[in-house]
């Protein structure tokens, strides 16, 4: 399944080994008739199974896993840095960083004293459940913690890949276009929370915040929206309260 890291799945989900062996002579005993095989299988089935496996692990350990998605430069890492510093002592955190190359982001998170693993996807444009499985196995996040999974900066591809997260958080900054939810609807459709970042820059940019909110709601009427600025701290408390509410919320079945 894993197109990006190339390693095989570990047998708990789907086997690649054939269920039987037939020797070469057998081939000639049946008459090469055409046969229709009804498959009816979701193409992303393998990823979805691994995502559910991750989800079960997170639930068992009461870990709140959040998948952070956005285009590059929206301020995902800055938001994380600020959150980790401001909420130190209040909640236990761990971070998985996804980027094509470098450990720059992981270094920034490490500097805050938080447990972090960097996944480099090479040419890959998204994280998948398999990569997260490996990362989690290595880092062993604590029980009752919050796990931030910062996806590769890309507003298209990560939309299709469930990682096993509880919530998907899409981040958009006011320096981007306010029609972005319409241009990249899949990400907004699959997210549960939208953070509008860099609101301190609103006086300087032609970004209509009401319009972006309306556009996001057109795509996904269930989407929650929080406006904030990591620079001047405006709105951060709402985000922190949202986080705490999700940690404390009893598990819904």
């Amino acid at each position: 399944m894993c197109a990006t890291c190339g390693c095989d799945t570990d047998g708990n989900v789907t086997m690649h080994e054939p269920g039987h062996h037939h020797d070469h002579n057998d081939h000639h005993s049946h008459d090469h008739q055409k046969k229709v095989v009804a498959v009816e299988k979701d193409v992303l089935n393998e990823n979805n199974l691994l995502a559910e496996r991750n989800r079960g692990y997170f639930e068992a350990k009461n870990i709140l896993a959040l998948n952070l998605v956005s285009s590059p430069g929206s301020g995902k890492t800055s938001l994380l840095e600020r959150t980790l510093k401001d909420m130190k002592g209040e909640l236990e955190f761990a971070v998985i960083e996804g980027d094509q190359q470098t450990t720059n982001d992981a270094d920034r998170i490490h500097a805050t004293g938080t447990k972090v693993v960097q996944i480099n996807t090479g040419k890959g444009c998204h994280l998948d459940a398999h990569m997260v499985l490996h990362a989690v196995q290595g880092m062993k996040p604590k029980n009752d913690s919050v796990l931030f999974i910062e996806n590769v900066g890309n507003l298209v591809c990560p939309a299709m890949f469930d990682l096993g997260e509880k919530e998907r958080v899409v981040i958009i900054s006011v320096t981007e276009g306010d029609d972005k939810p319409l241009k990249y609807p899949d990400m907004f459709y699959s997210s549960t929370l939208c953070i509008i970042n860099k609101t301190d820059l609103l006086p300087y940019v032609p970004f209509d915040i009401e319009k972006v909110k309306a556009n996001a709601k057109k795509v996904n009427h269930k989407l929650e929206i929080i406006e904030l600025s990591c620079t001047n701290g405006e709105g951060l408390q709402i985000w922190y309260d949202w986080l705490k509410s999700k940690v404390l919320a009893p598990e819904t079945v």
Partner: peptide, 10 residues
């Protein structure tokens, strides 16, 4: 939808 529906094999 995104699924493999069927195969014709021989």
């Amino acid at each position: 939808e995104l699924r493999v529906k069927s195969l014709i094999v021989s």
